[in-house]
């Protein structure tokens, strides 16, 4: 059974200033499932709706973001949760950190700069669970940090004393303190260097292997997905363009946008000419008609300008939204 099923989800930003209303269709008709025990990658460029999607599925949609239609259902072992109709109190009490946790991009802004790391652990655990005995708690935290391969000194350090990679790993250690079923990692390594990025991603993979939970990894960096994710979803302008197991995405992509993303990646040892895509990502307040990619697509046809392509399953686990690809054509 799926851990999370998202059905036909649409979430729009609606603003009204001086009588001028504006709707930004950040997520439009997105359906996907997360299975237990997998790393699911979400890729796409900036302003394609990645972060909006995360906000909605983690129950953090706040004005002006509103869910327009669709459903978000979790199945945590014994109990099912409808994320769109849950009270803030229940979300805070039972779900946040315990079942769903969130690793963000800027770990410096996650950690309290005037408190030692161990105190930050204490704050979080005290809020969500309560600490009956501090001695046992400290022992547990030390063990947890040790298991993740972090040196014990980090617990008594202030955030500014640690390097960027170490801070990001502390943020991951915090997110996993209650062994959640789902960890959402939003661009966890974007600001980091390749060596540090490798260390952080290895830690994420180790955690997943250790506790068999699900990780939703959001990043625009396709090379990261190639090395970490089991399945990848490519988003373009608020919609799913393609979804497939990682190897299929890289070796046999079907959507022209995915093909461009894969083929434009520069690689060491290979110097063939790479080109950029013409045009620019569309403005979601006024998205193009039909397929949202048609203005930039090298294979554009008449039908693309008027009709929205449906997301069809071409093979088990491989879904594409493109008029070029007919159902079960492979």
């Amino acid at each position: 059974m799926a851990l999370l099923s998202v059905e036909n989800l649409s979430a729009y930003y609606r603003t009204e200033i001086y009588g001028i209303s504006r709707t930004v269709r950040a997520v439009d008709g997105v359906s996907f499932e997360l299975k237990p025990n997998e790393i699911y990658g979400v890729a796409g460029e900036s302003s394609c709706g990645k972060t909006t999607l995360i906000k909605v599925i983690s129950g953090n949609a706040k004005h002006p973001l509103k869910v327009n239609s669709g459903s978000v259902n979790y199945h945590f072992g014994a109990h099912d949760v409808d994320m769109l109709h849950i009270s803030q109190e229940e979300l805070r009490q039972n779900l946040r950190w315990k079942e769903i946790s969130y690793v963000m991009q800027g770990s410096m802004s996650v950690l309290n700069p005037v408190r030692k790391i161990i105190k930050t652990f204490e704050d979080i655990v005290a809020t969500h669970q309560g600490i009956p005995d501090k001695k046992i708690f400290f022992e547990q935290v030390r063990e947890h940090v040790n298991r993740l391969g972090l040196p014990p000194e980090v617990l008594t350090s202030y955030p500014h004393q640690l390097s960027g990679g170490m801070r990001q790993r502390v943020a991951i250690a915090l997110a996993t303190v209650f062994h959640p079923s789902l960890i959402i990692a939003d661009e966890p390594t974007t600001a980091l260097d390749v060596v540090v990025q490798r260390g952080v991603l290895q830690m994420i993979k180790d955690i997943q292997a250790l506790s068999n939970n699900t990780i939703l990894l959001v990043t625009h960096d396709m090379a990261v997905h190639a090395n970490v994710a089991d399945r990848v979803m490519i988003m373009y302008a608020g919609r799913i363009a393609e979804e497939a197991p990682t190897e299929t995405i890289f070796n046999a992509p079907l959507h022209p946008y995915t093909q461009h993303l894969i083929h434009s990646l520069p690689m060491i040892g290979e110097r063939s000419n790479k080109v950029g895509l013409r045009g620019a990502p569309p403005n979601l307040a006024n998205p193009p008609s039909g397929c949202r990619f048609h203005e930039r697509c090298p294979y554009v046809m008449d039908i693309c300008r008027t009709e929205v392509p449906e997301l069809v399953t071409v093979r088990d686990g491989h879904r594409v939204a493109c008029h070029l690809v007919k159902e079960n054509s492979l």
Partner: peptide, 10 residues
């Protein structure tokens, strides 16, 4: 953005 990056590099 990734789709525009190579254009600057070129």
């Amino acid at each position: 953005d990734a789709s525009l990056r190579m254009e600057i590099v070129n």
